[in-house]
Amino acid sequence: MWSVATEGQMIKTYLPMDYLDKLEAEAIHILREVAGQFERPALLFSGGKDSIALTRLAEKAFRPGKFPFPLVHIDTGHNFQEIIEFRDELATSLGEKLIVRKVEDTILTRGLHEPGGKYPSRNPLQTYTLLDVIEEFEFDACIGGARRDEEKARAKERIFSVRDDFGQWDPKRQRPELWNIYNGRIQKGENVRVFPISNWTELDVWNYIQRENIRLPDIYFAHERQCVVLPSGQLLGLSEHLNLDDTDEIVSRRVRFRTVGDSTCTAAVESDAASIDDIIQDLLLAKVSERGATRLDDNLSETGMEDRKRNGYF
């Protein structure tokens, strides 16, 4: 009965939780649901800020126990070196199992074509490696750090997103997902992609990183870097994987990465933000979205993400 409480008690209980507490509680609930409902889950770990935040949430969900899932990294071979080092250090300090599978190996075993062009992106090929690793370990649930605010196709996806035998997303087959009840029942061969921070925005993630004092790879903070100026005006960090010619303009700029994917398809943004506080200030003033500022692959077509998801992409 609501009426049993005195006025004083009501006020105390109804003080709203801080909004980050609410987002955190939702994410922890989802992570524990995965642990409770699935036999062989995995946490897809990219080394980016979102998946690093996920590991902190997993600590909150499962310590003092171990994570009920390994960290899985799909290494495109085009990752930033700093990210790879950070990944290994983090896995060691967490004391959790890390599984790494390389896109390079998938290219060889499946006889795939190495992408060409000036900025060869192995990003689309990751899907094959991901599907292979899911099959190899028979993962029934893969947790990822995707957020609905990133992109309009992601904005449509459920938190428990069922994929068929081939990892494909079919928007027409999305299932009901009511309140905080998540349905993990699947057919053999199917798997579920789970997105605990679906309802977080880029700014929420940074606010959380600040509150929790989460350590990040240095490339998120302003530093001098040799960059190639793209026709769009975006800056791409110079790397051995690019096939540049004499026409390319190389400049040295003070930049940071707003999102971290392949070095060949993630652009840097000019910034002086050297601390988390600075970055939050930067974001409050930013006029361009995270993916718009940094992703070369989404700009290929209006349905870039939807098409890739339909093919099994994360």
């Binding site: 605010d149 309009k152 904005a155 449509k156 309802n199 925005t201 700014l203």
Partner: peptide, 10 residues
């Protein structure tokens, strides 16, 4: 509109 979309603003 076929399925629900989620949008965020502050």
């Amino acid at each position: 509109t076929i399925d629900v979309a989620h949008k965020y603003f502050t």
